[in-house]
Simulated scan of single mutants.
Amino acid sequence: MNAAMEPDLNALLAQDPAPAGLYLLIDRSQHDPLLGLWDGPVPEQAIHPLRDLLFEAAPERAPALLDPAAWPDMSSRLRLSWLQNMLWAYDRTINSLSEYYLSGWLLADAPAAEVADHLSRLLPQQHPSGELRHLRVYDPQVFHLLIEKLPAEQRRALLGPVRHWWYSAKAKQLAVVSADPAQRPPPGGFLLPDHTWHWLEILPDILLMRYLLPLLQDAAEGRLPARELDLDRAAAWLDLARARGWTRAGDEAAGYAVLLELLGPDDAELPALLALLEVCRAPDYPAGLYNYLIFQFQSQDWPRVLDTIRPRRHRNFRS
């Protein structure tokens, strides 16, 4: 990967709204993002559905590669709006944890059909258990995780014929991963390493943490350290959370892990914190720990809860 080779997508589109080899990867599993954006059907030559057994019974819901250059009636203004819609979709996801529909821009030295064929081969992956699983490589969060955790050779195999892959990494920002055309992917295609499956399994909890953590940091009136959560630290907090048995609901481990990130592992045994955890685990409690923290943020009561857990005079902040 070479940062010097990473072009700016806005500048690229400003020069030519439909450059050859620039494709849009879309997720249609929940909703087709093409609906309502065009009067009339999408030209058949512009859309390339990916093949996967998961969508065998409903091919219209399969992810697809859109080739704007093969859409002769699409205006330059509409082509540019795809980028704006992509950024809006990610900003909406950050604020609502909704699904992605617009997954990424891909620039390749290959026709759309060849790129779609490569992406199709990425989707079915063998789990260490021997089962065949579906890899949501078209989900920007999954793709971002793979880019962070795969070695360079595997990243090249992941990109295949794609030279530049832009995707949503932060609110209203695009990240780009680039491949050196002089370094061809290894033969045999892409095989997901066994250790990567663990990261994919904990990714939903990590996403919950990344959503809630900055909200509580901002609402703490400057009394908590503000830093971004990296994957290794998030995994460590989740391991500690699961060691305490906070897995009653899907978000329980994430809620406790957020508290560990905010307070530090030294505070994990605070009596007030343990009491709060027990309240949220009660069978008759209407919401789990994660939803409790969301509610306290929304009600602007998080500073009081923080003082209850760890009074100000006993703070021991970490840098």
Rank of each mutant, 00 (worst) to 15 (best):
E6A: 11
P7A: 03
A14M: 09
D32M: 02
E44S: 04
P49M: 08
E56S: 12
R61Y: 07
A70C: 07
R77C: 01
M86Y: 02
R92H: 12
I94E: 10
L97E: 07
L97F: 03
Y100R: 02
Y101E: 09
S103R: 04
A112F: 07
E114M: 01
L119E: 03
P128A: 00
G130W: 14
G130V: 11
L132H: 06
R133W: 13
R133H: 10
Q141F: 04
V142P: 00
I147K: 13
E148K: 15
A152T: 14
Q154H: 13
R155K: 15
L159M: 10
G160Q: 04
H164D: 03
W165H: 05
K172E: 14
Q173D: 06
V177S: 13
P185T: 06
P187H: 08
H195Y: 15
T196H: 04
L200D: 02
E201V: 09
R210M: 12
A220T: 09
R223M: 05
E228P: 08
L240C: 13
A243E: 13
G250L: 14
A254D: 01
A254P: 02
G255L: 08
Y256R: 09
E261I: 01
L263M: 07
G264W: 13
D266W: 07
A268E: 13
A275D: 13
L276I: 08
V279G: 11
P283Q: 06
Y285W: 15
Y290L: 06
F295V: 09
F297N: 05
I309P: 00
P311R: 10
R315Y: 09
N316H: 14
S319N: 15
